[in-house]
């Protein structure tokens, strides 16, 4: 790696890290899976890197009062293999298992992924479906906001200079909820061409709750509220699902690149939404 000169710090405590960030010039180094490739190409030229790997207790998954807290430095592999998440919030573990390849999952972190705000990242699809919240810390500030307020545009979040993601908060899944994450993979990078997360609850033979998160399709991941509305109250037949899934791309300005045209992406969003919802419905009790 032939990056531009930078200063490197490896703080041993959260306070120290936040102090270092306070100036606003420092950049956090988490798993480095997004940042380092950019530094190698000198597309990113941070003057000061603050490596969070020595800060204690920034990783790990804990349950507390109906919520699960996933520390920002928790790696994708830790999320994927966490017994707690697999039992109590399986959608997040499933999404993590689809990220990149084994090497990337061993290094990359949930905090880094959210902060980077890649429009095709896997986590946001699941986190939108889970109505997750993000806790942000800065010297003198500790705020927890909804994911939908956190992500604002392509590669853009509301995190301010010096602000750090501390953790991601997801609800403990109610028993009987069916979930699924389905992804069409771009074969070079492993990123999603489209990725769809679905959560379904049933009661009395009808879908009582539907949550659908979408990534890869548009400028940023989103919750497909239109699809959810069309599903809720139906019996969740194949026909209900197909109709609902078909509106997943409505109103979205779909991305085009050398890997997939906008038309194909939009169509695949509907196909994968259908598959994710179908799988979630069949798993819902």
């Amino acid at each position: 790696m032939i990056a531009q000169n930078f200063e490197y710090s490896s703080p041993a405590s959260l306070e120290e890290a936040l102090q270092m960030m306070a100036g606003g010039d420092a950049k956090i180094l988490a798993g480095g899976m997004s940042l380092i490739p950019l530094m190698k190409l000198r597309l990113a030229t941070p003057g000061h890197l603050v490596d969070l790997s020595r800060v204690p207790a920034l990783d790990g998954v804990t349950e507390e009062k109906g919520n699960i807290r996933v520390g920002a430095m928790t790696t994708h592999f830790q999320v994927e293999s966490s017994a707690l998440l697999r039992a109590r919030c399986p959608l997040l573990a499933a999404a993590a298992s689809h990220i990149g390849d084994m090497q990337v999952r061993n290094m990359g972190t949930i905090g880094g992924s959210l902060a980077h705000a890649d429009p095709a990242a896997d986590y946001p699809a699941a986190l939108f479906a889970l109505e997750a919240r993000v806790r942000l810390l800065r010297v003198g500030s500790d705020r927890t906001i909804a994911l939908s307020d956190f992500l604002v545009d392509t590669f853009t979040t509301v995190a301010e200079a010096g602000e750090m993601i501390r953790e991601v908060i997801v609800p403990v899944e109610e028993a009987g909820t069916g979930v699924s994450y389905q992804k069409l993979v771009q074969p070079a990078s492993g990123f999603a061409i489209v990725g769809i997360a679905a959560r379904i609850r049933k009661s009395g033979g009808k879908i009582s709750m539907a949550r659908v998160g979408v990534t890869g399709l548009g400028p940023m991941p989103y919750r497909a509220v239109g699809v959810e509305k069309m599903l809720e109250g139906t019996a969740g037949t194949a026909d209900d699902i197909r109709k609902a899934a078909s509106v997943v791309a409505d109103g979205v300005d779909a991305n085009t690149d050398i890997h997939a045209s906008a038309a194909y992406r939009a169509r695949m969003a509907a196909v994968y939404a259908g598959r994710a919802i179908q799988a979630a419905v069949s798993r819902a009790a």
Binding site: P37, L38, L41, R42, L43, D118, P119, A120, D153, T154, F155, T156, Q186, S189, F191, G218, P219, D253, N255, T256, D257, I258, H259
Partner: peptide, 17 residues
């Protein structure tokens, strides 16, 4: 240049933004 090569996946999205 470099941005063309690495930004492929994101160029369209970024230009629109």
């Amino acid at each position: 240049g470099t941005i063309a090569a690495v930004g492929q996946r994101l160029l369209d999205t970024t230009a629109k933004m």
